[in-house]
């Protein structure tokens, strides 16, 4: 099947570089920040970079299954946000902060 011109105007490589950049930003966010909500947002960023890449490949290959994956990931991410935020709220209630650096009791 022919790929529409409007999509071909932007080459696939651009999408790959863009997604990689987003993903790396997400990783750096997760690694460097100590605020649980920021870490959470960074994780979402990584998920969405993957979503973008999947959608791009799907369009360029004219195969809808990639986009179906994206829907699934979105649904799972939404559920994950609900649970994750609830956990963060509980952490805050217990120790009055959401700095993950202080959560270091679980060790030998």
């Amino acid at each position: 099947m022919q790929i529409p011109d409007i999509i071909r105007q932007i080459p696939l490589n651009y999408y790959i570089w863009f997604s990689t950049a987003l993903f790396c930003i997400g990783i750096i966010g997760v690694l460097t920040r100590r605020n649980a909500i920021i870490i959470f947002m960074s994780v979402e960023l990584m998920l969405n970079s993957v979503n973008l890449l999947l959608a791009a490949f799907s369009s360029y290959k004219s195969d809808p299954s990639g986009q179906i994956f994206v829907f699934f990931i979105m649904a799972v991410a939404a559920a994950e946000v609900a649970v994750g935020l609830a956990i963060i709220v509980m952490i805050y209630r217990n120790i009055q902060t959401i700095d993950v650096g202080l959560l270091n009791k679980l060790k030998w």
């Binding site: 990783i27 997760v30 690694l31 100590r34 993950v100 650096g101 959560l103 270091n104 009791k105 679980l106």
Partner: peptide, 17 residues
């Protein structure tokens, strides 16, 4: 070996990445 498990979340995530 048990010293590796130091309880810091960032450290775990770094190891994972």
């Amino acid at each position: 070996a048990r010293l590796l498990q130091n309880g810091t979340t960032g450290y775990y995530i770094f190891a994972m990445v």
